[in-house]
Nucleic acid binder design. Structure first.
Lengths: 210, 210, 210, 210
DNA sequence: AATGAATGAGCGTTCATTCAT
DNA sequence: AATGAATGAACGCTCATTCAT
């Protein structure tokens, strides 16, 4: 117990921190609260982490890792011609993100702060974009040159990644504000997303072929 | 100098608050700083506003008003068949939002905080969605029944409003992270947005006609 | 309305202040609250009263006046040999004080503050002691010399006035703490007071006669 | 100097707080002042105490403890038939209370505040009543049933404890208001208290015997 | 008699962080 | 690896009071 504590403790702190940040947000969660919730001394947190900010960084990084391994372990590049399978896959991604939705919201919120200079959001985005795009995004071999990589990046991020992640982060509040049901909202989003972003994918490809 | 302005003072406070919130974010801006910057006694701020939160609410509301009047004063429902004019209009909206981009970022950031329960973001969204859509969003005359209003709402918000406002809020940081130029990034976004969201508009309409 | 307001307003302020002081105590009641409750401008309170302290002083004085007129209007020096009538009269006094019990509690509380230098409590006491003693307290004619006036004063105040007023001020809390019923508590107090303080009155008189 | 005392520091804070509360009252003493007087960082006070109120509660409790140990260590139930020894004992108690008179005054003052809901005064009273009464108050052996315990409690508190503690708390001010000498005032009070409250004790007992 | 705006001082409380051990 | 004690700097907010009108 005294032995196992060493490495486990740090993880317990991280776990507790995630729960608290998710519940109250970053600023509203004090190091005291984290220490108390993790039943450790406050100073110990500063032994394991440089400061409060470092704590959330490690947390974000752990999400990055999770996303990364999720991406890699995916059945790559399955044929997905028909609409239904595309939508099915989309739902899968939403479900995956949903599991960490609160921390995602915190990450988005932090990324939008003017003081922020760490671009974890963009790093995260790069990863997730691969998730939606297989490796082909930056593996820009072949005929991608006619539509430069920059455009694809902007396209993937702002009309693909951002809508998805914002939907996951805001869904609950959206539903209670507009009186929609979560399931209906998800259906609607899948539909809307399929028609706009996903449709434009096909668009790109058809463009390429021309 | 600070003495005479009865109604002016409140506006000066709001103006200063906007500047500071935009520069440092909500939490990182103290009421003391606002008071100092506005050359006003701190207590006076609490004379004019219930609390710090109320201050930013009034600020957000002022944005809402601005957006509303912008919407109303627009040349309504111009014919926009050709791609170029559509893109031109889009750029206009981006420019409009750009003027308040920092406060928009604050608003997004605050809206994403888990504790938050004020749905100004959604209110703002409803307005801006009219801006992009004329009155036709809820003016569901005719045969819109086949595509329920909820879907359109979700579509407009998550694949229309959110990408735009996030682009405006994140553009600078995006550019410095990926080494893009602001102008090129804007071009790319306009292109991507036109191909995904705007294209799906047409899609909807063509659906209706069927 | 504009005419009547002048003098009435001050009284309304006093009335509101009494209610608030009674409900929350002196320190816990802000001038703002009083102004708001009285629907007057805060500065107007400072037009009518020198400061917050002056306000409560006037209030205490109004109680003094009330007590004074109550004393004077009493059927003086009735024969009260039998125990029952003595107890009956005592109950009457308790009822009288009960009407203003909360302000009495505030007065006691304020009097006990170390900073306090205004001896309204003692002034009030002098009056009320006459109430319990007819005029004979200081009208020390005859053979009072053997028991000096000072002793009588101390006796009246600390074993007569103080217990009564403290009982009135604390009764409710006493009852909820000890689980007594208010009526039973009053009965008990009357009994205890009759046996101790009132009995010692007789004692004094019998002493005198010896 | 302020660095080393781990458990001492908390006690120093309490000691300083007692002095300041005694001198200026509870509300008029700021946590800043306490910190400064104790040569301690203000935040440290909130490390040791939950809040300002908790501070005074601990202080009151320490008085309770003191009273309790004083009570226990007393030469129990000495025979005290003659008037003189009774008065002597009474003076002893007054002297004991005198040592903490200012905090007693604060306690009374706080107890009288309408917002207050902590019944430390009553707890303190229960203890002190044993002090004046040996164990016999609730030790109700034998034929006490004819005079129910409630009456005795009311009697002890309102005509015994309250007069004593109020006398201790108010004596100085009483003397300067009425121009009495402290010693004479104490003599007078002892006399008055002996004749009223103490005499009624005997009364009770004689009642019992009948 | 009455007001809205303004002030300065101070409040209790909390923060992230560091020290010695 | 882990702790209890301590710090300094702010924080949001409220106070009694005063100004010009």
């Amino acid at each position: 117990m005294a032995r196992t504590g060493s490495d486990t403790t740090k993880k317990r702190i991280l776990a507790v921190a995630e729960k608290l940040f998710a519940a109250r947000g970053f600023d509203a969660t004090s190091v005291d609260q984290i220490a108390r919730s993790a039943s450790v001394n406050k100073a110990l947190i500063y032994y394991h982490f440089k400061n409060k900010h470092d704590l959330i960084l490690e947390l974000f990084r752990s999400i990055l890792d999770e996303v990364a391994s999720h991406t890699e372990s995916r059945p790559e590049a399955q044929v997905r011609d028909d609409d239904e399978s595309v939508r099915q896959e989309l739902r899968g991604e939403i479900d995956f993100l949903q599991r960490r939705k609160r921390v995602l919201a915190v990450m988005l919120s932090e990324a939008l702060k003017s003081s922020q200079r760490d671009d974890l959001l963009f790093q995260c985005a790069e990863l997730v974009m691969q998730l939606e795009h297989g490796g082909e995004l930056k593996g820009d071999g072949g005929d991608v040159r006619d539509r430069p990589a920059q455009l694809r990046l902007v396209h993937e991020f702002f009309t693909g990644f951002i809508p998805m992640v914002m939907f996951v982060a805001l869904r609950d509040r959206w539903c209670s504000y507009f009186g929609h049901s979560p399931d209906q909202a998800t259906d609607d989003f899948v539909e809307a997303f399929a028609r706009s972003h996903l449709a434009s994918q096909t668009d790109f490809e058809s463009t390429k072929k021309r």
